[in-house]
Design a protein around this nucleic acid. Structure first.
Lengths: 229, 229
DNA sequence: TGTCATCTGTCAGCTCCTGACATAAATTAC
DNA sequence: GTAATTTATGTCAGGAGCTGACAGATGACA
């Protein structure tokens, strides 16, 4: 595992070069005003090649945060089994931030640059939300697995969506001030997480409390067997 | 105010014709497989004219739900001042559903058709969420106004985002089952609203409880002066 | 009826994105 | 080290979404 081969290294280099060129151009003249041809030209690559690295122009700006989501999912999978869902999600999110802090400086700078660009560009923000939502499905599946509940169950959906929302509000609340550094962002995350925890009833993410059997069923209601099956 | 004039009526007719033609084509052959030219041809109108009615191809599918958001905002503005934020939002949402039920049948059918299409088309669903989030800003402003808090305040953001999330999970939970009728949708909404209320601490949407002054400040912290300014 | 505002069609063109094919480069086999 | 094979890249053609500009048609209004 010494080296991943010259070919692979070259690919990684062009990929990063494309991202850097794109971020720079986007920042300088705006996202929509920048064409794919310009980005490709800046890296001295054909426009067709750009689309072999990124499916859409949007993707080049969102690729870094998307990588973050992968880390998030991995971290979540590594959380201890007994941990309540919301707690596990919170810890996974924190792990992503600390993971980023460990990376080298140009790497975190790139990430912050991308993040700010996304936050200030409606089209990119929309795309970011879309990715978040796609990722949400995977988080839901993981939480459902941990809790041993059906993927049709409302509760995992609710928990994950609520968590995602909290994280998003954390991001948004930094805007229009830019996120100057990771530690500041970490603090912000703790604040909003704490607000969420103070707003929610203890044990809410584990379903209805016992002895509440007469309450209208919501937990597991999505495809619950109806009387008569 | 007898009639809005022949010109205006004609415009409304073309607009609805475009929507109907689009929904039909989308349902028949899929959203991406349908071109704007086809839609325009179905209404016997030039493609250029299509774009004078709808800024994007997406818009023709989302226009109806967007109208619903306008109603939602109006209803929210009409809620009594003393009502807690989350309650006011819930009532406004309910009002939208009942408003829809009062409309004529072809109207609600159109809405349901659009809703189902959106739910089953990732690209449209993402667009729908994006509109929802754009609208969120206006809801936040309204809630902040009602509560007399700064628009930078975290709490209104949190409350509105959480509400939007709850509503969205309600929508999503209907899929892949289609929403056959409005009453069923109303019931679903009540279920998820009830789940949310049972998960949250009483008074959460009005800020931290008194006597908790030592807790880390979050409420109103968004642009708090830092030590050293 | 005639003037004016507005809506519509036509056309030309840009940008995003894709399939197909040929070329160049790296990897592997010999 | 050379040949064979895989894989990345460039070139080309083209479809689809979307826009500006101009000319003609059609309601509005006096």
């Amino acid at each position: 595992m010494s080296q991943p081969g010259l070919r692979e290294r070259k690919k990684q280099r062009t990929r990063l070069a494309l991202i850097d060129a794109a971020l720079e151009l986007f920042a300088a003249q705006g996202y929509e005003a920048t064409t794919v041809d310009q980005i490709a030209a800046a890296v001295d690559v054909s426009p067709r090649t750009f689309f072999r690295y990124f499916a859409t122009k949007e993707d080049v700006a969102l690729s870094l945060p998307v990588d973050g989501q992968e880390v998030m999912l991995r971290e979540l999978a590594g959380r201890p089994a007994g941990e309540p869902p919301f707690t596990a999600l919170s810890h996974a999110m924190r792990a992503v931030v600390t993971e980023l802090q460990r990376g080298d400086l140009t790497e975190t700078a790139r990430f912050l640059k991308a993040r700010e660009l996304i936050e200030n560009t409606p089209a990119l923000f929309a795309g970011s939300v879309r990715r978040m939502m796609e990722n949400e499905q995977r988080l839901i599946a993981e939480i459902a697995r941990r809790e041993g509940s059906s993927p049709d169950d409302l509760l995992p959906h609710f928990v994950v969506s609520l968590f995602t929302t909290v994280a998003r509000v954390g991001f948004e609340s930094c805007h229009p001030r830019s996120i100057e550094d990771l530690p500041a962002f970490g603090e912000r995350l703790e604040q909003i997480l704490s607000l969420a925890e103070r707003s929610l009833r203890p044990g809410w993410d584990r379903g209805p409390v016992d002895g509440d059997a007469d309450a209208p069923r919501v937990h597991g209601d999505a495809d619950a067997p109806r009387p008569g099956d």
